[in-house]
Amino acid sequence: MKLELSNEEIHLLPEKAFYWPKEKILGLSDVHIGKAESLQSFGIPIPSGPHLEDLANLEKLIEKTQAKSVFVLGDWIHQKNSWSPNILKDLDTFFNKHKNLNWTLLIGNHERGSIEYLKKYPFKIIEDAYAKPPFLFTHGHLQARAENLFQIQGHIHPVIRIKEGSTRLRLPCFVLDQNSLTLPSFGSLTGGYEVSHQKNRRFFATAEKTVFEVPY
């Protein structure tokens, strides 16, 4: 699904990421790597593995888009208890393979305690918002605002409930407002927050291999 935002072409991808072809930037948010491991540390016996699926999805997406840069808009890592040996090992393997790309990470609310760990990876780490006109990239938990810039953010894991006849679906979605785009969460082990409708707000639902606009 192609959109024109501030005169720039932006592709909304069913893999729950966006692509900015002119700059060859792939953007995504809220991967929450190591959420399973973090839950394990709280005594919830959930299997490890979701992060491998997320990393594999990201790898496929890099190949598919031929991106040169990847922007992660925060919450790459779930929590400081997420740094288990298997996570460290799998991230090493992943970044060894993809160190030639430009990696940028905006620190999200979940990874405040993980900055030291994150420095080991080829990320350019940014603790607040990042302006690349005409866009302002932010995680979305702080009230970052810049005049005249269109904001792209994550943080809330938007989902939309669709009701059509007897069909009920709850799908991750992009939320487009007058002056901002909110991304769905990229990670497979993340919940969702139902975003309510507002004036001039548009919803683009993701489902398996497609993105489609849900009219209100």
Partner: peptide
């Protein structure tokens, strides 16, 4: 095993303790 190690395969639950 579910309560002590989190499941059948120990390696899958590196952080687990209950």
């Amino acid at each position: 095993k579910f309560l002590t190690q989190g499941g059948e395969t120990l390696k899958n639950y590196s952080q687990f303790h209950k």
